[in-house]
């Protein structure tokens, strides 16, 4: 992992890193990734990936309205709002 990759991933992660942090992360993540390399010693050609540990499927709810939280509770944790909108810095499309 190099600096360019760290910067790419940091951007994907929406995390701002200082130059010093980048250095530390390059070192630490490289270590972890080389440890993870051990997976490549296994042949998994015909193995199915496991996303869920249980044999279950088809879980649904019916199309019935349920009461939502109160209006105050919608904004109880919001930093910025105007009327009944959440407010964010200007988004340029």
């Amino acid at each position: 992992m190099d600096k360019k990759e760290i910067e790419y991933i940091a951007n994907l992660s929406r995390i701002e890193l200082t130059e010093a942090e980048k250095e530390v992360f390059i070192h630490q993540l490289s270590n972890i990734l080389s440890y993870i390399e051990k997976l490549n010693t296994l042949d998994t050609e015909n193995i199915k990936p496991l996303a869920h540990t249980m044999n279950a499927s088809n879980v649904f709810r019916e199309d019935k309205p349920e009461s939502s939280i109160s209006r105050e509770d919608v904004f109880i944790n919001a930093t910025a709002k105007i009327d009944t909108f959440f407010k964010v810095p200007k988004v340029i499309e």
Binding site: E5, I9, L12, I15, L29
Partner: peptide, 12 residues
Amino acid sequence: KRRIMLGNYALS
């Protein structure tokens, strides 16, 4: 941060 970065890397 380290784990978020590692996870995003593995999915990128």
